[in-house]
Design a protein around this nucleic acid. Structure first.
Lengths: 265, 265
DNA sequence: CCAAAAGTGTTATGAATACACCCATGG
DNA sequence: CCATGGGTGTATTCATAACACTTTTGG
């Protein structure tokens, strides 16, 4: 392992320079798993595939696959993202490493270490057939309870929850929210991203001010405007502004009462 | 891969239930690498080991090692932490997964996927001999430039920089700083953690108020006080308060002038 | 007495909140 | 004309930053 030559690797000759004995150890499979979020019909959706085989046959699972011998986890994740969503412009999508799940018993078949990623897709393409045999679909995200998708296969409920938490947190101090939006969007749509991911309501006026006061968050498209939802005044259109960090941050409202414990502040 | 049974795994029979063909693929080695920080004589230090063999013989590297067949990356990291630091109470130390580094060419010898961790040690034990053959030592952290430790082996400069950035960020919105401190500490010492990690100076008065106003950040030890650095008034002693999140956050001062670009608000 | 650090107080500035209010559109 | 959402204005509240000042120690 890069780092040290420790006795932790049994029978690995510490002096072997060009290569270790590649088959001296029980092999690890390394995979990527993807939590792909989008907003469809006003709510948060997640891309899932239905498993055809045991274990967990019939359950929903996160899309994913093996690392190929010559690709990094990031490359594998982006490849899977393209395959599973059927999109072409995958290059521009937000894709971010979450963490690695390595419990020895997370897959009953063999030792599988999985690098999990979170991805955001602006406009969900059709449920799609997918490049793979497995059926893929956009499923409403369940949140705390496992919602419409029921318990997922393997440790994917955990991964999904971690991914949601990460995305929600990143909205606070980055301009990530625009990654959920089409190239041109209204401030109402941008606000809706926050509301859907956080599960809260935000004051439209204050949100507007905050976003506009942050240089580089959004840039207005001069003449353009669009009707949203039929009713109401046409809204000005914006593009992402190039910035990626948010100073000062846009903190989500604190989850009011501490459960069974002391006062806050 | 938990998730889908994709054709991404060549020659893996999709119907094989109890086990894949374990040796059908080029094996991946999975390791952990540790960025272990501490504060020694007032500055940030990092635990490094000196490499004895090629590649990168003579260079400093992050401590680390292989995952054993039956342990998770977290377990392996904690085991390595104990081995390399020589500490016993490793159970209570802060250890957090950073991310996974998987570039196909990051180790010239073979395919190595490494799960990196960041750890904090309150009082640095002696430089120690270490359980391993390699020499280990606490080296002053270099920051942007590679400082005293020179370029590290493999991609460890990158890992170390990522770890430092993560730690610095987490100080903002968690109570992590107490993990750098001994069980009993003064507010000046706690402030020093922030200053050393962030590389800035903080107003003692405001820092004090902020910390005390956050419920659960610290708890005063009634009668106790201690002299710090010889000079000055004796300071009250505190313990960690059990909370782990910081609401509202303690933001680090913005790095003053944007390099070549617009005004900041 | 002086330097240094702990600890207290005060003020000014800026941000977030919670509204009230007007505008433009579809029904 | 009314419901709906966009957009503007404003007052209150809260947090922070900046800095003056007192206290307690070692030299």
């Amino acid at each position: 392992m890069p780092g040290t030559d420790t006795p932790a690797a049994p029978s690995a000759p510490a002096h072997a320079t060009p290569a270790y004995d590649k088959h001296a150890y029980e092999p690890f499979a390394v995979t990527v798993d993807l939590a792909v979020f989008t907003i469809r019909s006003g709510t948060l959706h997640i891309l899932l595939v239905e498993r055809g085989q045991e274990p967990y046959a019939g359950r929903w699972a996160l899309p994913g696959g093996f690392l190929r011998p010559d690709e990094s986890a990031e490359a594998a994740a982006r490849r899977e993202l393209a395959e599973e969503t059927g999109l072409d412009d995958v290059a521009g999508l937000h894709l971010e490493q979450l963490r690695t799940y390595s419990d020895p018993r997370r897959d009953p078949r063999m030792r599988v270490v999985s690098v999990a990623f979170a991805a955001l897709v602006p406009d969900a393409p059709q449920a799609h057939g997918g490049g793979d045999a497995a059926r893929a679909a956009w499923i409403p995200y369940g949140g705390e309870d496992t919602g419409a998708h029921g318990p997922l296969a393997f440790d994917h409920d955990r991964i999904l929850a971690d991914a949601h938490e990460r995305i929600g947190g990143k909205l606070e101090y980055t301009c990530l929210a625009t990654a959920f939006c089409p190239p041109e969007f209204t401030l109402g749509e941008l606000r809706h991203v926050y509301e859907v991911v956080w599960g809260t309501e935000l004051d439209p006026a204050n949100f507007r001010r905050k976003v506009l006061a942050t240089p580089g968050f959004v840039a207005q498209i001069p003449g353009a405007s669009r009707l949203t939802g039929g009713r109401g005044k046409p809204a000005a259109l914006y593009r992402g502004g190039g910035a990626d960090s948010l100073h000062p941050p846009l903190l989500r409202p604190a989850p009011e009462p501490a459960p069974t414990e002391g006062t806050r502040r």
